[in-house]
Nucleic acid binder design. Structure first.
Length: 425
DNA sequence: TCTGGGGTCCTAGGACCC
DNA sequence: TCTGGGGTCCTAGGACCC
């Protein structure tokens, strides 16, 4: 009996979520755009077949997409996050341990009886997800995380696998490793793949056989671990309970450049409110706030980027406290003739909430402190129930001109009562 | 006109300590 | 010109992930 590592992920997740809620999209080419309708971040299989590349700026291909009859959607993160939770809940009973790795991916650990093939298990899991959620997934099974990633890629590469591949059950994995390009190996990004290619390392098998010393000199211990994993020795543990976050960031591009202080203050207030909400959900507080801004890196003029940091005497997750500290930073960041394209806030040095409960130098008397906390909980509750922005601070501005563009947003079909699909029988 | 957002981990180097 | 040998902590930057 040994352990097998499995990677399950949603095929074209965002596009599949859109199609799951709007069956008229099934079988049609569909792309989903990033925030601000910036670039293409997901494509249905049909859109992929048309040769539409990932990451393409939308404005460059807009006409072409229209001509080809491609359906375009703004990203609807409320929908994807909700579908993700349902997916993870479905996967949970199928494995001994589950690590939710990203919005559309999870690692799992399960027992493998001596030299058994887990493909049938994978196919059954796949059918259940399809039945429960209407989502297609791929399942990769192997002795380590890196190999499970690889197996998952192979499961998708060849339709004959039916979306499931068990690399731990094949007699000789080497030809399969050779079939995965170096760029597709998990942990090998742009820089490292270029370096590998220069050395004649073009696929996963050749990376596995590369001299360890050479790899270590270039990629450090991270590279060595990767190589061990390729050899089937698991050194990246499954993380079932994620550690507390060390920092939290909220940043957005503007739909149009910001040049004036009032608009910048509105944007910072909006991001601080959102970040404070995250802190409260994570039961954390922060005492270090960084606000950063930058101009567009694309318009040819000189690039401008600046950040300012403020430290609080006492960590907090009260929106009003964080706003009071962060808003004065706006003036230090704005420059005449430097239109800003993006801003963000970074809350650092996060601490667990309970640590401060009875602090000697608490900023407010206990009863007032409790009232503040109750107010925050009420605001969060209303926004959760009726949608983000139902209750907000006046300093965030109402329908600001700089707010991100989402012109082709689908409805919040799984999280808003008003948007539930109507079925006619 | 129009190019995403939110993280983590590791390493190197500097400041400072005894 | 040469001028120890550790430690720790912090920060900046690089690389990667989805």
């Amino acid at each position: 009996m040994t352990w097998a590592t499995v990677l399950i992920d949603g095929n074209n997740f965002y596009a599949s979520c859109e199609a799951a809620l709007d069956p008229s999209l099934i079988g049609r080419p569909l792309v989903v755009l990033s925030n601000n309708d910036g670039c293409i971040v997901a494509r249905s299989a049909e859109a992929r077949a048309l040769g539409i590349a990932m990451g393409t700026p939308y404005f460059q291909v807009r006409r072409e997409l229209e001509r080809l009859g491609v359906v375009v959607r703004s990203s609807n993160y409320a929908l994807y996050a909700d579908m993700s939770q349902r997916l993870m809940a479905t996967l949970e009973p199928w494995v001994e341990e589950l690590e939710v790795y990203s919005i559309d991916e999870a690692f799992g650990r399960l027992h493998r009886a001596a030299s058994s093939d887990l493909s049938a298990w994978g196919l059954a899991l796949r059918r259940q997800v399809r039945r429960h959620l209407g989502l297609p997934v791929a399942v990769g099974i192997a002795p380590s995380k890196v190999l499970a990633k690889l197996a998952n890629k192979l499961a998708k590469q060849d339709p004959c696998h039916g979306g499931v591949f068990d690399l731990g059950a094949v007699a000789d994995p080497d030809p399969w490793l050779a079939a995965v390009a170096i760029e597709d190996v998990w942990g090998i990004g742009r820089k490292l793949s270029r370096w590998c290619r220069l050395r004649g390392v073009a696929n996963a098998l050749q990376l596995r056989e590369l001299a360890s010393g050479e790899l270590r000199a270039k990629a450090g211990v991270v590279g060595l671990r990767l190589q061990q994993e390729l050899r089937g020795r698991s050194c990246l543990p499954l993380v079932a309970v994620p550690p507390a976050k060390q920092e939290t960031c909220v940043s957005r591009s503007f739909s149009e450049p910001i040049r004036e202080l009032p608009q910048l203050r509105e944007a910072i207030a909006t991001y601080i409110s959102r970040a404070a909400e995250k802190l409260r959900r994570q039961h954390q507080r922060s005492d270090t706030i960084t606000v950063f801004v930058r101009s567009s890196p694309f318009n040819g003029t000189s690039f401008y980027s600046k950040a300012a940091t403020v430290t609080l005497p006492l960590a907090s997750n009260d929106t009003a406290v964080l706003l009071a500290a962060a808003l004065p930073l706006a003036e230090r960041l704005l420059r005449p003739h430097k239109p800003l394209q993006k801003a963000g806030v970074l809350l650092q040095n996060l601490q667990p909430e309970e640590r401060l409960q009875h602090h000697l130098f608490a900023p407010l008397p206990p009863d007032q402190q409790r009232r503040r906390e109750a107010l925050m909980a009420t605001v969060d509750g209303l926004n959760r129930r009726y949608g983000r922005g139902t209750v907000q601070w006046a300093s965030c501005g109402l329908r600001p001109a700089w707010a991100m563009k989402r012109e082709r947003l689908s409805r919040a079909a799984t999280t808003r009562l008003d948007d539930i699909p109507v079925v006619q029988a």
